[in-house]
């Protein structure tokens, strides 16, 4: 399994990260080394083995449908990099 520079660029796009010229090479090399190691999992026979998404035997953890206090708007917006009229403000959205 060889990870190409194009793979790295596609993954960076999915992750919303920029990859500078030299970095693409570096990350490609490192990810190949890491996945080269990870590929040892192919040796494990997992036929018929159930995946473990949770280690706990917990199920049906729920809360009653009760309203609890929300944050005062000022606190909700306190960390916002940009705001206007009680809204969070973001640059334009090009996607249709």
């Amino acid at each position: 399994m060889k990870i190409t520079r194009q793979d790295v660029e596609q993954v960076a796009l999915l992750s919303r990260l920029e990859i500078a010229g030299g970095e693409a090479e570096k990350f490609t090399g490192q990810l190949n080394a890491i996945f080269g190691y990870i590929d040892m999992l192919n040796k494990v026979d997992t036929e018929g083995v159930e995946p473990t998404a949770h280690v706990l035997p917990l199920k049906n953890v729920m809360r009653p449908d009760e309203v609890r206090a929300s944050l005062p708007r000022e606190e909700a917006l306190a960390n916002a990099p940009a705001r206007e009229d009680g809204f969070f403000k973001v640059p334009k959205i090009l996607e249709g």
């Binding site: 809360r63 449908d65 009760e66 309203v67 609890r68 206090a69 929300s70 944050l71 708007r73 909700a76 917006l77 009229d85 009680g86 809204f87 969070f88």
Partner: peptide, 25 residues
């Protein structure tokens, strides 16, 4: 009455960003 994963109210038409908490933010 409340949201799916937190206790904020689901009331329609509230002033912007007033039915919010750390979880739904």
């Amino acid at each position: 009455r409340s949201k799916i994963f937190c206790g904020c109210s689901t009331t329609f038409g509230a002033e912007q960003n007033t039915n919010v908490c750390p979880v739904c933010l």
